[in-house]
Nucleic acid binder design. Structure first.
Length: 212
DNA sequence: ATCCCGAGGG
DNA sequence: CCCTCTGGAT
């Protein structure tokens, strides 16, 4: 994709959705961290369904710890990978209490040191909670970056670095959510809905058979 | 490279 | 049935 096309690409996404927001439901930094940790290889619809029951009962590190492994599993059993997520979240809560006074740390280094928090999750928290222009490359952004030609790459890190380099600064803050939403609702994994895509004119991917 | 691992869609 | 979903740890 040409450089001038990248500006046009994001101008269109911005015009359609000036203030994009995560679809995960949360009301504090800790709830956000918890929701993002639970969202690995899971839909945010499924995560919200679980956290709507969990957060009213426990939305602090102390309260989550008090649930224990079994208690916490009971709330998140409908989410994939729930045993590891329960274990990681409990360990993370312990660290938050012991090292950060129960608060969510605001640096990449501290976030990635938490069990269950890798580069992608840290990037989401840094972007959404702390307003940093990070690019969390999840399954959607990895696919969209490659398919569109926006930032082709063999690994999520390569795509992340390509996007950070190529996206104009004024769009970086919200680019994460625009690309997520594009991938989720239009540039879908199995059947991309190119016929109703607002940025198809600037995209390298051209489907062979047109559909309705 | 492999494991974890339920829900929803096609 | 198979694929996908805002991955991370071993």
């Amino acid at each position: 994709m040409k450089k001038s096309d990248i500006s046009a690409f994001f101008a269109i996404l911005q015009a359609a959705n000036p203030h994009p927001r995560t679809e995960l439901e949360y009301s504090s930094h800790f709830e956000l961290l918890t929701a993002v940790l639970l969202s690995a290889q899971a839909t945010d619809v499924g995560v919200n369904k679980a956290t709507r029951k969990l957060f009213p009962v426990a939305n602090t590190p102390r309260a989550i710890l008090d649930l224990g492994q079994e208690g916490l599993e009971g709330y998140i059993q409908t989410i994939g990978l729930y045993r590891s997520k329960a274990r990681h979240l409990l360990q993370t809560c312990r660290i938050l209490l012991e090292q950060y006074g129960g608060e969510v740390p605001a640096t990449r280094e501290a976030l990635e040191a938490l069990p269950g928090v890798g580069r992608k999750t840290a990037n989401v928290v840094l972007n959404v909670a702390f307003g940093q222009p990070t690019m969390a490359v999840d399954t959607h952004i990895f696919r969209v970056g490659n398919r569109t030609g926006l930032a082709p790459g063999a690994t999520p890190l390569a795509v992340e670095q390509g996007l950070l380099k190529r996206i104009p600064k004024e769009y970086l803050q919200h680019a994460h959510h625009w690309l997520i939403l594009l991938g989720r609702y239009v540039c879908q994994a199995r059947k991309p809905r190119c016929w109703e895509c607002s940025v198809a004119a600037y995209c390298d991917f051209k489907p062979k058979t047109e559909q309705t």
